[in-house]
Computed example of a mutant assay.
Amino acid sequence: MAPNLIKACLFGLASGSCVLAKPTTAGCPGLTVSHEGTPAGTFKNISGIQIYHTHPPRSAKPGKINTAILYVTDIFGAADLQNKLLADSIARANYAVIMPDLFSGNPVPANALSDPTFNFPAWLARHPVSESDNAIATTIAYMRNELGVQKIGAAGYCWGGKYVPRFLAAGQGIDVGFIAHPSNLATDEIMGIKGPISIAAGDLDDAFNATSRRTAEDILFSKNTTYQTSLYAGAPHGFGTRVDLSNTRQKFAKEAAFLQAVTWFDAWL
């Protein structure tokens, strides 16, 4: 996307001329977020992992050749409607998007947060770091070796916000990263980041609170990393993928974080 178009879209967010949620957005082609609808992509079994593939529409302008986005999901997984719709939204911004199932068909159920009987510690025990590491490493190898992708951007949400930094370390396969409201992101994982990283945070997120944000920024600054952080008012944990659409602050935060991710990839991939 041309820099003047990016500036026009950013200005439009404030002026009201570029509203992300509408199906067509004059002056901002492709920069729309789907909150509902039918997913456009398909799943393929790659080395025993179900991987969702979604591509730019045929009417879109040509994207960057041999460039794609690895979408690393939250705990609700690749089969979740909101994750598929957000992956499709990124695809409409002229990126092929590849989203693996990190949990071997056993993500957290969509209603788990409102179900007091759901045993989250037991679920966590069944899904160690090594499981997601393996799914992501397999997907990166597939993107490089079979799809011919030369530059990989990665978008990680919640659970995925821990793993994008892990694979943004030197030699791990990701070139550019974006994360929103990361969970369990460790100091050594931030220290290991080598490529450009953009972080979307919410001021109501206890999982990535003010102390965590400051720690991440201090580390990235000390390492002279290319980074960006954006803080959204009234945004709870999970705002990058699922929000109360009747809440203006939350709706804006989700849509603005999407724009943050796309413009970051446009600049650095």
Rank of each mutant, 00 (worst) to 15 (best):
M1K: 07
L10N: 14
F11A: 14
F11E: 15
G12H: 08
G12R: 05
L13W: 01
V19F: 07
A21R: 15
P23M: 09
I49C: 04
P56R: 02
P56A: 05
S59V: 07
N66R: 13
T67D: 03
A78H: 02
A79R: 15
D80G: 09
N94P: 06
A96S: 15
M99P: 00
N106A: 12
P107V: 07
P109S: 14
D115M: 08
P116Y: 06
P121N: 12
P121H: 14
W123E: 12
L124F: 08
A125C: 11
A125N: 12
A125W: 11
V129S: 11
V129L: 15
E131K: 13
E131V: 05
N145P: 07
E146Y: 06
V149Y: 01
A154E: 03
G156R: 05
C158K: 07
W159C: 01
P165L: 01
G171W: 07
G173A: 10
I174M: 08
D175A: 06
I179Q: 01
G195S: 00
P196C: 02
S198V: 05
S198K: 02
D203E: 14
D205I: 08
T211P: 00
A216G: 01
A216F: 03
I219N: 05
L220W: 06
Q228D: 06
G238Y: 02
G238I: 03
T241I: 12
N247G: 09
R249F: 10
Q250P: 09
K254V: 01
L259G: 00
V262N: 04
V262Y: 00
T263H: 08
W268P: 01
